[in-house]
Nucleic acid binder design. Structure first.
Lengths: 160, 160
DNA sequence: ATAAACTACGTAATTGGTTACGCAAACATA
DNA sequence: TATGTTTGCGTAACCAATTACGTAGTTTAT
């Protein structure tokens, strides 16, 4: 058996490697939180950061910012509410919306969480040899994907 | 709202971007297959390639090569069997194992599938500006992760 | 002012994966 | 040769996400 088949495959192995790498990060982040008895989950991180920056946001706004479906955000934020990290206020101007914000508990605990998140960033940086090249290369692909989607690109290459 | 919050976040946005990018590729590949009335799924690709290269493999071998759990492979290959792409033979030397291989149908259809997969590779290459820099950068992170896991690295940075 | 279209978001059903468990076969060892 | 341990893999329960759908509220057009 190959040392690493996905790597050996080159280009076609890319997407599986993206998934594998992400799964590893999420898994180990979850382990880390568990070990420290933190009752937060890995995918809450970006929601916390968003709400630190924006004070209040709707479900749809969060979904768009994170590139997830709105039902995903409903579930995620419901859990965060259950744990007391998020409070929601019905929007008075538009009654369909509810504005989500960090609770007092969240604001009190976030400074400690930032210590862990910062350590995570340092760990990441270290694994990336202290440069942003991976991020840059990702951006290139993301930008291309925005310009024209992958399916269309495949079709174009078939017609040649 | 930011143009792209995950990108703006830099390092901490990385894992969410890996997921988002992978999801986009998988989604659009699925759409492509559907449009061409191909009854295959995106994550079968690597299994096809593995079995082209290795003639016959067990569930566990495939799981290890792809970095997935064995139950994932059981489900995936069961579907491929149902569609007639994989046949399995009980291993005579070790009766716990069954050796999976490409069916005749698979061998007949694979040349056509390669046309599509090749177009996909061309599309990918194009999005990566015809270079392997992203793959190289990924490899760096993967190798570091193999050396020492992310959780341990976070802990190390906390102790400083 | 009313009808039509659109938007926000909650819920249900489905999906692709995971961990946990169990059992049978194989292997190692006393 | 019996016995404890490991391995392979199937099944069950669970989980995080998706798509599809319903409904109430908002906006637009006539």
């Amino acid at each position: 058996m190959d040392n690493d088949f996905l790597v050996a495959m080159g280009y076609p192995g890319l997407t599986a490697r993206l998934k594998r790498l992400n799964d590893a990060f999420v898994h180990q982040t979850r382990e880390f939180y568990k070990e420290r008895d933190l009752t937060i989950e890995p995918n809450w991180h970006m929601v916390f950061l968003l709400l630190e920056k924006h004070e209040q946001l709707t479900v749809t706004e969060i979904a768009e910012a994170l590139g997830l479906s709105h039902p995903a955000i409903v579930k995620l934020t419901t859990k965060m509410k259950d744990k007391g990290y998020i409070s929601s206020v019905k929007d008075q101007k538009d009654k369909r919306k509810s504005q989500l914000q960090l609770s007092e508990k969240a604001k009190k605990e976030i400074p400690e969480l930032h210590i862990y998140w910062d350590a995570g960033v340092e760990a990441l940086k270290e694994m990336m040899n202290d440069n942003q090249e991976l991020l840059k290369q990702l951006k290139i692909v993301e930008d291309h994907l925005d310009e024209m989607d992958y399916k269309t690109r495949i079709l174009n290459h078939l017609d040649l």
